[in-house]
Design a protein around this nucleic acid. Structure first.
Lengths: 347, 347
DNA sequence: CCATTTTATGGAATCGTTTTCACAATATAT
DNA sequence: ATATATTGTGAAAACGATTCCATAAAATGG
């Protein structure tokens, strides 16, 4: 293991000078710098990160906690984040919590011990009685930027998508197409994102004076199977909805299966709006109309925000919460529903 | 920042004793240990990882280099690896190379500097003239376990799927169904995995005395678009194949699109065997017959192998290369082709 | 050419652990 | 009870960088 003293000896200078060269601190004569650089190259010297971190209290590492990297939304966010942090020579420790808050706590402690410089946190759904965990989150000596999902904390740095807007856009789109019996399938976990998408749905219906039918609101866990079973229960209603808005991608897959099993044609018999958009979306039949989230951009923005905080501190931040807009991508899974002739008032 | 001396002072012992308690080194009286543990808890002491790493030369961190975390195969591998390393308190730095060997080199240097304990490497396709890089790979002072894709190096620890077997199984399946004009769409990069899948295809045809039609072998980059265009070129041949074996998942999506565009029905008009199997596979129409790789298990095994090497060294390893078998999952995308009545000899 | 400012350099302390070595305390054997 | 083996404990030396401070060398001004 070649170390800084070896370089110093070889270059005929002190370790202090070598350190100055490495860290571009200046105050080094050009010729000296040259000698040092040569010695470094010749000895193939690589500074020891642990030693450096011990002194500087910087690890050039950030932690990223995701609920499930297998959910195709999160790899995109990861890449977005990575693309910006790498420019500042940061590296990312990726932690998968399986949507489990205990795992999240465990990882948070590890990241704290490992002294990462900052954390990008996409929260797992919170269980009850986690007050002291929230307290810990809030007092962790490491800057956290929350991503996508928000905890119940005030005024924290966060990057989220406009989920109310997404839910509103999806629902309004269906209303414009003439649908009045619009169901929503959403996730039962206490996650802000799904609560807000539901809120958008409710807001849209209310704004258009459509009364809300509680039996059209279904909640479950975000799996394909659950999507199928929730789809079944919706399709077997006497007063079956003419359109379904699904706030989760896996459940959307389930819905499409349920339609197929029920021998219903989309969009002829029933319209569907999904959530999230991936590059393999073209395999759906019909191709899905979806609310597409700016996943990559969310990752980029969060990373950018974190790095800014790492550099300038959290205090002089103009706005701690960044809200990015999703985009309604209209494709082929929604049809026009004409039965009701009532004029639709648009906002 | 509370440190070990604070704990020592509070517990009325020396730092050496505190260290012994923390690291379970033994030789500490029960009552002393109790005092120390209490002090730790009371002060909320967390050992400083950088300082520890500096002394022990262990970071409890491993690097994982993947070509593209957006390819759904790799998140599964990641989870597999994470599930085993977490049991040993390791943490994973995830590095995305975008299938670019220069990025890979860059990350490798960073991981070396950061002194990760080991590396899980899924190689990017190699460019020409990378001899000194290979040399560097081979002499890196950090244990590497190669995953999925192998470099041209002899006798290195690696975990791969049996790609020849996968290609053989897919092709043989089609042959059994009566197909004789079987095309293959594969990736042009010099990657062992695709070369081997092609090899399996060739082997199967040869074993069954079917002559190889070079125009049925198409290569391209692994994207949906390329799959579409390669599909087009195959479908527009005068002597169009009756079956297509695609060695890459994204290209498979493209093929299915191409069939749709050409108004060909699968499996009635043409049969397809794809590669890789994900939980959203059910969205395909028809559901695809695929060669499913044991992605999770590959991640697990590689991590397990790496940890074993970290613990016992690389020398007393029975076999450095672990080959896992893929599984042919027969679903609905392959039909029987009866035109040729010739008896098919099975091996 | 000397006084003064600026720039370049090295010595040594420091970061927070682990670990070796010496020795003290206790347990075991005779 | 004494000799010996075992166990428990602390002082101090690493580990490999960064950085403060003092001083040497060079540049600048008159």
């Amino acid at each position: 293991m070649v170390k800084i003293t070896d370089v110093a000896k070889k270059a005929g200078v002190s370790v202090a000078t070598v350190s100055r060269v490495i860290n571009r601190r200046g105050n080094v004569r050009k010729s000296t710098e040259q000698k040092v650089l040569e010695a470094i190259k010749e000895l193939n010297y690589i500074p020891n990160f642990s030693a450096r971190s011990l002194k500087t209290e910087k690890t050039l590492t950030i932690g990223m906690i995701v609920p499930d990297i297998t959910n195709p939304f999160f790899p995109i966010v990861f890449r977005g984040a990575e693309s910006v942090v790498k420019q500042e020579d940061y590296t990312i420790i990726l932690c998968n919590t399986f949507e489990d808050e205990y795992e999240e706590m465990r990882y948070l402690s590890i990241l704290e011990a490992k002294k990462v410089d900052g954390i990008l946190l996409i929260k797992a759904p919170g269980r009850s009685g986690n007050e002291q965990y929230m307290e810990k989150l809030n007092t962790l000596p490491i800057p956290i930027v929350y991503l996508d999902r928000l905890p119940k904390l005030q005024d924290i740095p966060a990057v989220v998508a406009d989920n109310i807007g997404g839910g509103y856009a999806a629902t309004t789109h269906l209303l414009k197409l003439g649908h009045r019996k619009i169901a929503i399938i959403t996730v039962q976990y206490p996650l802000t994102v799904h609560l807000e998408r539901l809120q958008g749905y409710v807001n849209s219906l209310r704004d258009h004076n459509i009364s809300i039918n509680k039996s059209y609101i279904k909640k479950g866990i975000p799996t394909i199977e659950e999507g199928i079973s929730l789809g079944h229960s919706l399709l077997s209603m006497k007063d079956r909805p003419t359109a379904i808005f699904v706030t989760n991608h896996k459940m959307t897959i389930g819905i499409m299966r349920a339609l197929e099993i029920a021998a219903l044609e989309c969009p002829k018999d029933i319209s569907v709006v999904g959530y999230d958009d991936f590059d393999w979306e073209s395999v759906f039949h019909p191709r899905l109309t979806v609310v597409a989230q700016p996943a990559y951009q969310m990752g980029e923005t969060a990373a950018w925000l974190l790095i800014k905080i790492l550099r300038d501190g959290v205090d002089d931040l103009p706005n701690k919460k960044v809200i990015l807009s999703p985009e309604l991508k209209i494709r082929e899974s929604c049809g026009i529903y004409c039965q009701s002739k009532s004029k639709l008032k648009m906002p």
